[in-house]
Amino acid sequence: MSDLFLDEVIRPESAGGDGRRARRPGREERQRKRRQRRRRTVIALVVALGLLGGAAWAVVTYVLPTIQGFSLGESESADDFPGPGHGSVQVVIPPESTGGAMAAILHEQGVVASERAFTRAFTANPDASGIQPGTYNLLLEMSGAGAVDALLNPENRVQTRVTIPEGLRVDQILERLSSVTAVPVEEFETAMADTAAVGLPAEAGGNYEGWLFGATYTFEPGTTPTEMLAQMVQATITTLDEAGVAPEDRQRVLTIASLVEREARTPEDRAMVAQAIQNRLDRDMKLDIDASVAYGAGKSGTELTREDLDTDGPYNLYTRTGLPPTPIASPSAVAINAVMNPTPGDWIFWVTVNLDTGETKFAETLGEHNENVEELRAWQRENE
């Protein structure tokens, strides 16, 4: 091996810088091509992303709303009936039911397609909170909105309304209850035997006279005779409490108020009759009230005879002093308030001088009273 060979192997640059200069153009050309390739790749990527973005925008703008609209429409139609419904079903809405609780009941009984259908309509209707508890006649397969409207319509409510006029006796009240509810009088009488179940206070002494308050009552289907009577007794207790009557005075106030109820018509006259009765009681005078005699005789006031007035009995206030043993009718709140707030005065006589209008005149002396009685007699002669 010659030294020349060794020199070429060990020091290849010994040939001078011409080798590097010869290789530089090739390297620059390769770098230029790589840069071009990178630019083309970036441009292609930008174009691809643009195309993808445009496609995505088109999908969101045009395709998805159509698909979603179809899906939502299909979903809403699937969970709600188109209505108006068919057949009939009775539905009971318990007290204090929420919209969700109503929805569950209606869905279970086939009124609405889903709970969601009703709750959606319940939320959308501003009057829905006014739905009352009770029993309703509804249709099967109603729309949610239709069910809400039906529950707000009082005509769909299944209930019995009974109006008990003021001033009736117990036997008249039972007849009235029976005629409207179709419950036999005997069932009411059986229920009355359990005074604790009905809620009759001990001060009534087991006698319901005066304790069945005259008012209009609404009874739901299935209401028992005991429950009906209990509502009426409770109404009397509530009225007495509101008038400020102490429990120990209830029976006495009811008794006087029942006399006032039957003896006068207007609130003003009742307050004056209440004072006249108290004035007589304070003087230990007989009350001489025809209505009490009629009650004891089982007659109306216009049917009384002289014999009835002369026949002694616990309710004949012409022969006995003091109050009758029980009320003679169910007094109104006006009569009760008249007893609690009588019009101050010294009169001890009163008489209705016009039986059509109920005009009543009061007197402090027997002479004045006799003049008023003569006015009544004149009216009767003119109206025979």
Rank of each mutant, 00 (worst) to 15 (best):
S2I: 07
S2D: 03
V9R: 06
R11Q: 10
G17I: 13
D18Q: 13
R21M: 08
R21G: 02
A22M: 06
R24L: 15
R34G: 03
R38S: 01
R39H: 06
R40I: 10
G50R: 05
L52W: 14
A58W: 14
V63L: 14
L64Y: 12
L64H: 07
L64T: 12
L64E: 13
P65T: 05
L72Q: 14
G73E: 15
P82D: 13
V89I: 14
Q90F: 10
P95N: 05
G99Q: 09
A104N: 03
L106N: 06
H107P: 00
E108S: 09
E108N: 10
A113S: 02
R116C: 00
F118W: 11
F122K: 10
A124V: 04
S129L: 08
G130I: 04
I131Q: 03
P133V: 04
G134P: 01
Y136W: 01
Y136Q: 00
Y136L: 01
N137M: 09
M142Q: 14
M142N: 06
V148H: 07
A150V: 02
L151K: 03
L152R: 03
L152V: 14
N156V: 00
P165V: 04
L168H: 12
L168N: 13
R176H: 04
T181M: 06
V183K: 08
V185S: 01
E186S: 15
E187W: 07
T190F: 07
T190M: 10
A196R: 12
A197E: 14
L200W: 04
P201H: 01
G206D: 03
G206W: 05
Y208P: 09
L212E: 12
L212Q: 12
G214T: 12
P225G: 01
P225C: 04
M228T: 04
M228P: 01
L229N: 03
A230T: 14
Q231M: 15
M232V: 13
M232S: 00
L240G: 03
P247K: 06
D249N: 15
L254K: 08
A257F: 05
L259I: 15
A264I: 01
R270V: 03
R270E: 00
R280N: 09
L281K: 10
D282F: 06
M285Q: 05
I289H: 02
Y295V: 10
G301P: 03
T302A: 11
E303A: 07
L304G: 09
D308S: 03
L309M: 05
Y315R: 12
N316I: 02
Y318I: 01
G322Q: 12
L323H: 13
P325W: 10
P327S: 02
S330F: 07
S332W: 05
A333T: 13
I336L: 01
A338N: 09
V339I: 15
T343V: 14
G345T: 15
V351D: 01
V351E: 02
T357Y: 02
T360L: 00
F362M: 04
L366E: 11
G367R: 13
E368C: 12
H369P: 06
V373E: 04
L376R: 14
E384Y: 08
